[in-house]
Design a protein around this nucleic acid. Structure first.
Lengths: 157, 157
DNA sequence: GTACTTGTTAGCGTAAGGCAAACTATTTGT
DNA sequence: ACAAATAGTTTGCCTTACGCTAACAAGTAC
């Protein structure tokens, strides 16, 4: 029965989450389109951002395309100053792809899309309400971090 | 001084938000790539989803391309069964673009991306913690709805 | 019934992504 | 030291998706 209470709370949260996601959908997608990226380019940017720099082999695994194709996509990202290629000190065959400041900025705008609207919405609230939201998001972030840590521990790829 | 407290709370929430967004970035982007869409196709899908069906003229305004170009993009969405063209009963020149069930599903997966992980994270929590999060997200969603309503009132386009 | 509006078709060009094959540079294994 | 394997690029080729203008068909409006 205690489980039942929690399940119902989770269902209620997820319903609210759906409302929120649809309300924010427009603001969340705008930075994506403003960046003028193609899907493969975006994917590489996100993989590189998450890994803090990746080799072609790593990118190939995530992308599922040939290394030749990858060279071309990365070329275009380099031309747009979103990414640079740098030598790997441990193996000079490897060319690590890393974000430029402009690239990091672009990724951040895409990931943080909708933050402006959210801040505006928060300004409508009382200190008490903000306190509740602050505690809730910290609970969520802490739990998400633990979850991610467990995942890494289970899958030490 | 009271304002100062609220500002600090808002800053604290937005910091946590950044942590959360980066933790969820991977899960959020996966459905996007799985859909095998191009950026223009995605944009049209989202506009159509938000508007509950759009005419070519409306789409043209959002996309900033010629009507001829639009015809081609919509053709490809129709070919993938994401969208259908239907006559407008009020003006038979107009062909309204609307989502198919498959299209609605695709958009929902993209917008709700990350929900699975979020539900998994919530399952780590006590009923009390879930209660806090439920109240917080409802506060946020209600305020976001009010904000959106005000926006529509100010901009009755 | 003429003029406007909506959308499609035809015909064109460009950019991006995709591949295999050949090549360079480097490391690894013997 | 040399052969084999690995990482990445270049070349050459193909396909798809966008994007445009111009011409057209169908419908609406004055």
């Amino acid at each position: 029965m205690a489980e039942d209470v929690r399940d119902r709370l989770i269902a209620r949260i997820m319903d609210t989450q759906r409302r929120l996601q649809y309300l924010f959908a427009h603001d969340r997608s705008n930075p994506l389109f403003d960046a003028h990226l193609t899907m493969p380019q975006l994917k590489i940017l996100l993989v590189v951002a998450a890994g803090g720099g990746s080799s072609g082999q790593e990118l190939q695994r995530f992308m599922g395309v040939s290394l030749a194709t990858l060279t071309g996509i990365v070329d275009r990202l380099v031309a747009h100053d979103l990414v640079i290629r740098q030598e790997d000190p441990h193996d000079r065959r490897v060319r690590r792809v890393a974000l430029t400041p402009h690239g990091r900025d672009t990724v951040d705008r895409i990931i943080m899309a909708g933050a402006e609207r959210q801040a505006r919405v928060l300004r409508r609230m009382t200190a008490e309400e903000l306190e509740t939201i602050a505690r809730a998001s910290e609970l969520l972030a802490d739990a998400a971090e633990e979850d991610a840590a467990e995942e890494r521990a289970a899958q030490p790829s």
